[in-house]
């Protein structure tokens, strides 16, 4: 049994204090969200450009949640959960991407 100690992000005994990283995460998520809204309602990019950028902002939001709220870097032994989550992201990309590709039925028969 692996007993590598978990990385402790915060000292256990510390009382009170201010949750700086949580506040930072919250502010970041607000900024990213407002950014996406602003892009859609006020910017003059094309449909695909906008789509690309707001999807990118959404991916950043994942990182914000993972890093600031979900303590993804905390681990107890090897970080299997990060590997599996990474693989999951890859398969999400495959499922959505390939479904669009397949279901577009560009049969190209001439």
């Amino acid at each position: 049994m692996s007993t590598v100690p978990a990385k402790a992000p915060a000292p256990e005994t510390h009382q009170g204090g201010f949750p700086w990283s949580h506040v930072a995460g919250y502010l970041l998520s607000l900024v990213l969200t407002i950014g996406a809204f602003a892009l859609v309602f006020h910017a003059k990019l094309s449909f695909h450009e906008t789509l690309f950028v707001i999807l990118f902002l959404a991916v950043l939001q994942i990182l914000v949640q993972l890093l600031f709220f979900m303590h993804v870097t905390e681990r107890h032994g090897p970080s299997y959960h990060m590997m599996m989550f990474g693989l999951a992201m890859f398969f999400v990309f495959v499922i959505v991407g390939a479904s669009i590709w397949i279901m577009s039925f560009g049969s190209m028969v001439s």
Binding site: L87, F91, V94, A98, W101, I102, M103, S104, F105, G106, S107, M108
Partner: peptide, 21 residues
């Protein structure tokens, strides 16, 4: 395990997806 995940469309080659698919 990983490659096997990327092969599912071979069950419907005749469904008219593009030749690339």
């Amino acid at each position: 395990a990983v490659i096997g995940y990327l092969t599912w469309a071979h069950h419907f080659f005749t469904m008219g997806a593009s030749a690339g698919v």
